[in-house]
């Protein structure tokens, strides 16, 4: 009986050691999990700021594209930058049926600082136009090859602008700015339905 009791006691001691070891193992296993969760939270925070920057960039570019052609002009050098100074630059679409106000430069969304800069660039080029002769067309209406076609090259300048909106921001702890850019084009088209 004595022998059995002493054996049982020794088993109990083993169980305690096992439990401590098990706890230590589990705790060790949790370390990378907690680490991954922390990294994931930081990544989510960064993504949130990126999405805000993307939305801001879209919103500002949409506003700029709504301006009638020619109000946001590229200047005599062919390129002009709006909102690049240290303060907010407010642009109004005077003359448009509904007034649009475009604010560029430093902006603040939910405590995060962003800066929106618009660059308007003239993109001159040439149109390749196949031109027909109306008299020859009238004489041979069923045969397009006999319409007196000629390939004409017609230059265009000051009629097609590139709008590039750049939003910059800096993530917490980063030393370098991040940027998101959207570009589109606007041409001197007449009002369309």
């Amino acid at each position: 009986m004595k022998q059995i009791n002493s054996r049982l006691r020794s088993r109990k001691a083993m169980s305690l050691t096992e439990i401590i070891m098990a706890m230590a193992l589990l705790a060790t296993a949790f370390i990378p999990i907690v680490g991954v969760m922390g990294t994931s939270m930081k990544a989510t925070d960064k993504d949130d700021r990126t999405i805000k920057a993307v939305n801001l960039c879209q919103e500002k570019l949409n506003q700029a594209l709504q301006f009638p052609f020619g109000i946001l002009e590229p200047g005599p050098n062919g390129t002009k930058t709006y909102g690049d100074g240290g303060s907010i630059q407010e642009l109004n679409s005077s003359g448009a049926s509904s007034k649009i106000v475009l604010r560029l430069g430093p902006d603040d969304i939910d405590g995060f600082a962003y800066k929106a800069v618009l660059t308007v660039t003239d993109r001159p080029g040439t149109f390749n136009v196949p031109m027909y002769d109306p008299f020859q067309k009238a004489q041979n209406p069923a045969d397009p090859t006999k319409w007196g076609w000629s390939s004409e090259v017609r230059p265009y300048a000051g009629m097609f602008f590139q709008y590039t909106m750049t939003v910059t921001w800096r993530d917490k702890g980063d030393t370098k700015d991040k940027q998101y850019t959207l570009s589109s084009f606007k041409s001197r088209v007449r009002d369309t339905k």
């Binding site: 017609r154 097609f160 084009f185 041409s187 001197r188 088209v189 369309t192």
Partner: peptide, 10 residues
């Protein structure tokens, strides 16, 4: 936009 401009011009 550019395609529409070309159409409106020619």
């Amino acid at each position: 936009e550019l395609a529409l401009l070309k159409f409106q011009l020619y």
